[in-house]
Computed example of a mutant assay.
Amino acid sequence: MVRLPLTPRQREGGRRLGALLREARGERTLNEVAVAASISPETLRKIETGRMATPAFATVAALSSVLPVPLQELADACTLRDVDLEDVG
């Protein structure tokens, strides 16, 4: 199956999600949070750096359950309004 390239909207949403997760992690180590969420540290690293801009819903839900951030807030970080997209270019 061929995967379509990500749109600028998806890439920017991924960057926002990654930044929010990194901030929510606070002083906890990447490994600590990854293990608590039952995901690999490399997966969390990719999400936080924006290299995995569209992680699976189950992954985002697991991270929400171990971090002090509601799932809706994570979803909102990924969703750009048209006015936000103007800043992306």
Rank of each mutant, 00 (worst) to 15 (best):
L85Y: 07
P5L: 07
Q10H: 12
E86W: 09
Q72E: 15
T43F: 02
L21V: 12
R11F: 04
G89F: 07
A58E: 13
V83S: 15
T7V: 07
K46G: 08
I47V: 14
L6V: 02
G18D: 04
T7L: 07
E42G: 01
A19I: 05
V69M: 10
G18R: 08
L44T: 00
R45G: 03
A36H: 05
M1N: 06
E73L: 09
P68T: 14
I39N: 01
R51T: 01
L74Y: 05
D84Q: 11
A62P: 00
L63Q: 05
E48I: 11
G18K: 08
P68R: 15
L4A: 15
E42R: 02
R22A: 15
T59Y: 00
L6P: 02
A75H: 11
R25W: 03
L44G: 04
S64I: 04
E73V: 11
L63A: 08
R28L: 12
S40K: 01
I39A: 00
L67T: 00
P70V: 07
L67W: 08
R3Q: 10
A61E: 13
K46F: 05
P55M: 02
L74H: 08
L21T: 06
P41R: 10
L17W: 02
A75W: 14
S64V: 02
S65E: 09
E12M: 12
V69T: 05
F57W: 10
L17C: 10
A58Q: 08
P68D: 15
D76E: 15
S38E: 12
M1T: 06
E86K: 13
I47A: 06
T49N: 15
R22T: 13
R11P: 06
L44I: 00
R15C: 06
E86N: 11
G14T: 08
A75L: 12
S64D: 13
G89N: 12
I39P: 03
E42L: 04
A53T: 02
R45L: 06
V83G: 11
T43E: 01
R22S: 10
A37T: 01
R81N: 15
S65L: 03
L80F: 10
N31T: 14
L63N: 06
R9D: 11
V66F: 09
G13W: 04
P68V: 08
P70K: 15
T7D: 08
R9W: 06
C78Q: 14
G14N: 02
R15M: 10
G89A: 15
A75T: 14
T59I: 00
G26A: 10
F57C: 08
T49F: 04
